[in-house]
Amino acid sequence: MARVSFGGVIKEVSLAYTPEAVPGDYVLVHVGFALNTVDEEEAQKTLELLRQLEPAGAETIDDAPGGEAA
């Protein structure tokens, strides 16, 4: 069992399914179990894709069929 902080709220969580998790990692928790460690690099990539969408906003509606997010 590990102590997991959710924005300052601490709950005992089983790491039985995320043996790779080390203190400082972000984990995805469901009914008392960590189901995965969050891949921070992937999270940044997703956010980056969202940011890249911005120039494809309202002005370029007609010619932006969405090649920007692979």
Partner: peptide, 8 residues
């Protein structure tokens, strides 16, 4: 922390 506890 209230929001977090509610999310959990």
């Amino acid at each position: 922390d209230v929001r977090a506890a509610c999310e959990i």
